[in-house]
Amino acid sequence: MNNHEIDYKLYGDDMQFVEVELDPDETVIAEAGSLMMMDDQIRMETIFGDGSSKQGSGIMGKLIGAGKRLVTGESLFMTTFTNEGTGKKHVSFASPYPGKIIPMDLSELDGKLICQKDAFLAAAKGVSVGVELQRRIGTGFFGGEGFIMQKLEGDGLAFVHAGGTIHRRDLKPGEVLRVDTGCLVAMTGNVDYNIEFVGGIKTALFGGEGLFFATLRGPGTVWVQSLPFSRLASRVFAAAPQRAGSESKGEGSIAGGLFDLLGGDRK
């Protein structure tokens, strides 16, 4: 066992946070900015990459680890939290948007998990956060996640977050599941991942479901989210005021509509 063995507890329903319990000298790594709260005598340190032994101890290994995180759209830095006290201490991390936190025991997933680029939240020290390149051209261009996805490797515990409700699906050998490209959260390394055209010009142009979907072929395990952050953001943007100064006029209220109708100015 190369990873630190940590205990945890999840709180909340749709806006969750995870509380990690650290024994003396145990360490957890997390995305920069995900900290919610922590006990006294926990030392916080910012590092390049993920701090795993796979990066190597030299400066070049650290730069490579940080570079991998950069191409996945994440920060160059991660943060470690180490219990320097004599008893058990707790540190908590929160999701960046509404959804669920999924505990992933990599020792039960053949040591490898592939997930969307912004899914990783925190993990036991020793878990490697790397890059998974999509080798198929179609998957890279139309897969919703581009050529690059996150790859978590090790035998420890990792926490992945996603939007809405999370559904786990265990695929049998040869079983196929078609998923909206934005709804795919994570999959085990043995799942065959490809992209297919929806089919039919009318369906593609007017169906409202996009031109492509992900085809996942078992055996393996897949996690799917009901509300991708991109879908949530697009709905929020569509409902937001589109004109400068509309907030000051109270758009959406009766008074605001009356002033717009009469062409009045509140200044």
Rank of each mutant, 00 (worst) to 15 (best):
G256S: 04
V18F: 02
E26A: 06
S248H: 12
E175C: 03
R135K: 12
L171P: 01
P98S: 07
G85K: 00
G67T: 12
E175W: 05
F159I: 05
R235Q: 14
V160G: 01
A94D: 13
D13M: 08
M78K: 13
M78G: 06
E19N: 06
M36Q: 14
T221N: 08
K249S: 14
A214W: 00
A158T: 02
I195H: 00
V71D: 13
K89M: 05
T215S: 13
V185M: 10
G199E: 15
D180S: 09
S92K: 03
E247W: 09
M149T: 07
G140F: 03
T139E: 14
I42T: 09
F120G: 01
A255R: 13
D23Y: 07
K68E: 15
G140Q: 09
A239Q: 12
L70P: 02
T221H: 05
S95H: 02
T188C: 03
M37A: 13
L177G: 07
E21Q: 09
F197C: 06
K151E: 15
K62Q: 15
D50L: 03
S34L: 02
Y8Q: 06
R136C: 07
S107H: 11
L70I: 14
D180Y: 05
L177H: 13
G252Y: 09
D23M: 09
Q242V: 07
F206Y: 15
T79N: 15
E31A: 04
P103Q: 12
E153L: 04
A244H: 11
A123I: 04
L133F: 08
V160P: 00
V18C: 04
E19H: 02
R136K: 13
D50N: 04
L232S: 11
G49I: 01
I29A: 02
V131F: 08
A204N: 09
G252A: 10
F159Q: 01
T79S: 13
M187D: 03
L227C: 05
G156F: 01
V91M: 07
S128I: 00
L22Q: 00
L232F: 11
K117W: 07
A255H: 12
A122Y: 00
L10Q: 11
I114W: 01
D118Y: 06
P241S: 06
P103F: 07
V198M: 14
R168M: 14
D265H: 11
N194L: 05
G200R: 09
G144Q: 05
G156Y: 01
A122W: 00
T86Y: 11
P219L: 10
F93K: 00
Q150C: 08
T165I: 12
E19A: 06
R243L: 13
G189M: 09
F237D: 15
Q116G: 11
L22H: 00
E251V: 13
L35H: 08
K125W: 12
D14Y: 07
G208P: 02
L152K: 01
F206W: 15
N3C: 12
L205R: 10
L232R: 12
D39P: 03
A240F: 10
D13V: 10
S248T: 13
T86M: 10
G163C: 05
M187C: 11
G164Y: 08
I29S: 03
T86I: 09
N83M: 02
G256H: 01
E26W: 02
V71W: 10
G208W: 12
Y193R: 05
P228D: 08
P228S: 09
